[in-house]
C-alpha cells in the first residue's frame, strides 16, 4: 500500500512538474517535446486508474497526433521565434502575482468542493453493467460510445468533419511543398514500422468489442500511419485526391447518420439497433469510423486541400 502511495505521489509530482516545465520552457521545441512527454505520463496515470481505453487514446492522440500538429506548426513558424519565451511579452510583477493569486484561490476552491462531495458518490456504472449484455459488445466503454450514448459519438465525428472543412478553408498546400524532406534512414524505418502499425490498428478495432481498444484508438494509430506516409513523402496527395479525400472525411458522418436513418426506417428509435444484430451494426459503424477518423487526422496534419499534379518518383 505504501509502495503504491509513493508511486502515486511520484507520478503526480512528475505530471505537474512536466506541465509547469513545458509551459515555462524558453524554447518552443522544448515546450512541445515536454508536452508530449506529459501526455505519456498522464496516460500512465490513467492506466493506474484502470482506464486503459482512454490511456491508449491519450497516448496516441493527445500526445502523439497533437504533438505532430504542434511540431508542424512550430517548424512552419521557425525563424519567427514561435513558442519561444523570449518572444513573450514579460508580464509586470504585479500582474504576475495577481494572476497567481487568483489561480490559487480558484484551484483551492475546486479542491475544497471536491473534498466535500460525499462518497461513494452515485454513478451510472451499475446501469451500464446491467444493460451490457444487450448492448452487443462486452467492453463497457464501447457500449457507452456506440450504443447507449451513440448520439454523442455521432456529434463528435461531426466535430472532426467541421474541422476538416475549416482547415481546407484556411490551408495552403503550396506552403508545405517547400518544407525540407526527411533522410534515408527514415524510409528504412518507415518501411519496417508502417505495416506493423496497420496491423495494430486492425487489432485494436477488433479488440474494442471486448477489451480496451476500439474505433478511436484504431483510427488514431491508422492516422499516425498516414502522418508518417505524408512526412516521408511516401505519399503526396495531389489535386486529383480531393474528391476521394472528401468522400472519406464525410464517410464517418454519413455512415453514422445513415445508420440512424436506417434504424428509423426499421421502426426503431434513432440509432436503436435491432437487439439481435447490435453487434454487427456496431462493428460496421466502427469500421467506417476508423477509416474516416484515420483519414481525417492525417488530413488535419496535411493541413490543406491538396493541390498540384502528381510528381514522379524521379523528381524527389
Amino acid at each position: 500500500m505504501l509502495l503504491w502511495l509513493v508511486f502515486d505521489l511520484v507520478l503526480i509530482g512528475a505530471i505537474v512538474w512536466l506541465a509547469w516545465a513545458a509551459l515555462a520552457a524558453r524554447d518552443g521545441f522544448e515546450m512541445i517535446v515536454l508536452f508530449m512527454v506529459l501526455g505519456l505520463f498522464v496516460a500512465l496515470a490513467w492506466v493506474r486508474l484502470q482506464a486503459p481505453d482512454v490511456a491508449l487514446a491519450e497516448a496516441a492522440v493527445g500526445s502523439g497526433i497533437t504533438g505532430a500538429l504542434l511540431l508542424k506548426t512550430w517548424r512552419h513558424r521557425r525563424g519567427r521565434a514561435a513558442g519561444d519565451a523570449a518572444a513573450d511579452a514579460r508580464p509586470s510583477r504585479a500582474l504576475g502575482f495577481g494572476v497567481m493569486g487568483l489561480v490559487t484561490v480558484l484551484t483551492g476552491m475546486l479542491a475544497a468542493v471536491l473534498v466535500l462531495i460525499p462518497r461513494p458518490a452515485p454513478s451510472l456504472a451499475e446501469t451500464v453493467f446491467a444493460n451490457l449484455a444487450v448492448s452487443g459488445v462486452d467492453n463497457p466503454v464501447t457500449a457507452v460510445l456506440l450504443n447507449f450514448r451513440a448520439y454523442d459519438t455521432l456529434l463528435e465525428v461531426v466535430v472532426l468533419f467541421a474541422v476538416v472543412v475549416v482547415v481546407w478553408l484556411l490551408g495552403d498546400a503550396e506552403a508545405d511543398r517547400r518544407a525540407p524532406r526527411l533522410g534515408s534512414i527514415f524510409f528504412g524505418f518507415a518501411r519496417l514500422v508502417l505495416p506493423v502499425m496497420v496491423l495494430i490498428a486492425g487489432y485494436l478495432l477488433w479488440l474494442g468489442g471486448f477489451a480496451p481498444g476500439g474505433a478511436f484508438q484504431a483510427g488514431a494509430v491508422l492516422g499516425a500511419v498516414g502522418i508518417v506516409l505524408l512526412l516521408g513523402r511516401l505519399y503526396t496527395p495531389t489535386a486529383a485526391d480531393r474528391l476521394p479525400a472528401r468522400l472519406v472525411f464525410g464517410l464517418g458522418t454519413v455512415g453514422f447518420a445513415g445508420a440512424g436513418l436506417a434504424t428509423l426506417a426499421l421502426g426503431n428509435a434513432f440509432l436503436g439497433y435491432p437487439p439481435e444484430a447490435a453487434k454487427t451494426w456496431i462493428l460496421v459503424i466502427e469500421a467506417m469510423l476508423t477509416v474516416s477518423i484515420a483519414a481525417t487526422l492525417a488530413g488535419l496534419f496535411f493541413g490543406a486541400a491538396p493541390s498540384g499534379r502528381p510528381t514522379r518518383e524521379s523528381d524527389r
Partner: peptide
C-alpha cells in the same frame, strides 16, 4: 421526447 437508441435517461440521451 425522443429517446435516442431506445435507451431511456439516465443511461441514454
Amino acid at each position: 421526447i425522443s429517446h435516442l437508441g431506445g435507451w431511456t435517461v439516465p443511461l441514454g440521451i
